[in-house]
Design a binder for these strands. Structure first.
Length: 580
RNA sequence: GGUUCCGUGGUGUAGGGGUUAACACGUCUGCCUGUCACGCAGAAGAUCGCGGGUUCAAAUCUCGUCGGAACCGCCA
């Protein structure tokens, strides 16, 4: 038996009546009624009400002090049962109390209310914040989630293998965190942005199914849904497998994971598959929220020769919404205001009235032929409203249409808030024209196998080449990225040449992979889930930092431990670093 | 790197060119034998982030700066 307790604060019930018990924990609250005092004693497992009859025992005891008490488990009177806590039918009447650890009398915040406190204060006193059961529970769930994923992957025959944390910097992708080498003057280690190269090397090493709950490091700015510095991926790779095989794993693991830890229904069966280009047209984004039933259509051809100048020669997209033609003008004005807020000049729309006549700012520019074309194309009916989004630039019109679709869905509350709806975005273009350089560049993952292999690279317009590469999107959040990898050195070289790299570049930057592939490598496929972001959704939080025990703030600092910090002159000298 | 918002006792907020800067929670003191967000009475606690400017007068207006958050860039 422990010196400190016979039981935890979360487990005593009526079946323990009359037992002599010892409990230890944090003092949550003290309610002093004169002759009788109640102390809520909290530990990791729960809260138990302690009854004190001698106020001398509470000397020095205040909120958040750590105490040990011994007493007898007593049944509460019917009218004093507290249904809010597991132990609410009993209480412990104590005869001794020992103060194990004192506390400052004035706390930086009330532990139970810590979620309402500004984040910088919470993080400065994170240890207090984490005592809050609501905050505490997230970390427990995180632990269980990691355990679940590990078990699930092992059940599926995947082998967990650790890949290096001290590795080499690669110029592509995100900024690396770099670590100076003591033994190699002027050289640096880098923390991995992802285990990408190593997991592919594992495939070349003959391991069949690899996974890892992998820490990843990127020296990039954070967001509410993106951790600064470090985050975790469920990373996996499988040999002798194609895209269908890994998609099956996705459809097995992720819904099970969301069902286990989420509070919402999860879509059953196969995920809907949407080719990238179709997603961009229908939803205006590569991470659509399918709970929103609205879809975007292209009606450019109707307006090729229109009298309405903003639409003439432009790309025109439209969103049909049924049964809203009778909304008041003010409602439509709010939509117009939203359009302006995203830098659209305005938004045109037509409403279909009871007599099938049209009403709206755009109507006077339409010919009967146009009207017929729109009716057919959009499936308009009485009560429908068709919103138009136009611009000469394809990326702008696509983005704006997507934003309008989302706003209409939100405004009309069309979404099922009790659902996690997954889909695959497939058929990713291999290349795109970089906005920065104007040259051909990889759109996503350069290690993906171009569909059609060498032949496609030789014969096709690069912008027409697709990859067996996919994302898993849930409720408009990109959770997973996966792809069939390029395991053929000669194809790899060709694929990189299109993006302006030489064989020498590949040899110097990705020497390990290039060399390994030269000695035979099974065809392989893999994907990675952003665990923190998935947890954020499962915990219904709107900030990823709520899923991590000790997150860095947006400025990349941990104000509790003082990270990052300065190092000694000696450390600098040994690692050949000179500050200036 | 950029944009926007925020910064007022320990915490969360209100207020707003002028006198004791308000409220809730917390803290302290006293009362109370059944509360569980206990209650009641009282007290302490803030140069309103920092610096400059305008003004007879700045916590308030203004400029700058620092800090935080959200978004854009960035995140193959």
């Amino acid at each position: 038996m422990s010196t400190y307790r016979t039981n935890t604060c979360g487990e005593l019930t009526l079946k323990d009546l009359d037992k002599k018990v010892t409990l230890s924990g944090f003092v949550s609250t003290i309610r002093d009624h004169g002759g009788v005092m109640f102390v809520d004693l909290r530990d990791h497992y729960g809260t138990t009400q302690i009854v004190v009859h001698d106020d001398a025992m509470l000397k020095g005891v205040s909120k958040e002090t750590v105490i040990k008490v011994t007493g007898v488990v007593v049944k509460r009177d019917e009218e004093t049962i507290n249904k809010k806590i597991e132990t609410g039918e009993i209480e412990v009447v104590i005869d001794s109390l020992e103060l194990l650890s004192d506390t400052a009398k004035v706390l930086p915040f009330e532990v139970d209310e810590s979620k309402k406190v500004s984040e910088d204060v919470r993080l400065k006193y994170r240890f207090l914040d984490l005592r809050n059961p609501k905050v505490h529970e997230n970390i427990i769930t995180r632990s269980k989630a990691f355990n679940f994923l590990r078990n699930k992957m092992q059940e599926l025959g995947f082998l967990e293998i650790q890949t290096p944390i001290l590795t080499s910097s690669s110029p592509e992708g995100a900024r690396d965190f770099i670590i100076p080498s003591r033994k190699h003057k002027g050289k640096f280690y880098a923390l991995p942005q992802a285990p990408q190269q190593f997991k592919q090397l594992l495939m070349a090493s003959g391991f069949d199914k690899y996974f890892q709950l992998a820490p990843c490091f990127r020296d990039e700015d954070g967001r509410a849904d993106r951790l600064v510095g470090e985050f975790y991926q469920l990373d996996m790779e499988m040999a002798f497998a194609d895209q269908e095989d890994i998609m099956k794993v996705a459809e097995d693991v992720f819904p099970a994971f969301f069902k286990e830890f989420g509070k919402r229904r999860v879509t059953k069966g196969h995920f809907k598959r949407i080719p990238y280009n179709e997603a961009m047209l229908k939803y205006g984004t590569d991470k659509p929220d399918l709970r929103n039933p609205l879809e975007i259509i292209d009606v450019s051809e109707v307006f090729t020769n229109t009298e309405f100048k903003p639409f003439r020669g432009a790309i025109v997209r439209a969103i049909k919404v049924d049964d809203i033609a009778t909304k008041p003008n003010s409602w439509f004005n709010e939509v117009v205001d939203y359009a302006k807020s995203i830098d659209m000049p305005g938004i045109g729309y037509i409403s279909i009235m009871e007599d099938k006549s049209l009403k709206g700012p755009i109507d006077k520019f339409l010919t009967d032929e146009d009207r017929n074309a729109l009716f057919n194309k959009a499936g308009l009916k009485e009560g429908s409203v068709l919103f138009f989004i136009a611009d000469k630039r394809k990326d702008v019109v696509t983005r704006n249409a997507g934003l309008i679709r989302t706003e209409l869905g939100r405004k009309l509350d069309l979404m099922d808030h009790n659902l996690f709806e997954f889909c695959f975005i497939t058929d990713m273009p291999m290349y795109e024209i970089s906005e920065v350089t104007g040259k051909l560049d990889f759109m996503h993952n350069p290690f993906s196998m171009p569909r059609g292999g060498e032949k496609a690279l030789d014969e096709k317009d690069p912008l027409e080449i697709y990859a067996d590469q996919f994302d898993v999107v849930c409720n408009g959040v990109e959770l997973v990225s996966g792809a069939v990898r390029n395991n053929r050195p000669e194809v790899l070289v060709k694929a990189f040449e299109k993006a302006g790299y030489t064989e020498e570049d590949i040899k110097s930057k990705f020497n390990a992979l290039y060399t390994a592939f030269g000695y035979g490598c099974p065809p392989h496929v893999g994907m990675a889930l952003g665990i923190d972001r998935a947890l954020m959704m499962l915990l219904e939080e709107d900030n990823v930092r709520e899923t991590v025990a000790f997150p860095l703030n947006q400025n990349g600092e941990d104000v509790l431990t003082g990270t990052p910090n300065e190092v000694t002159e000696l450390q600098l000298r040994e690692t050949h670093i000179k500050l200036r």
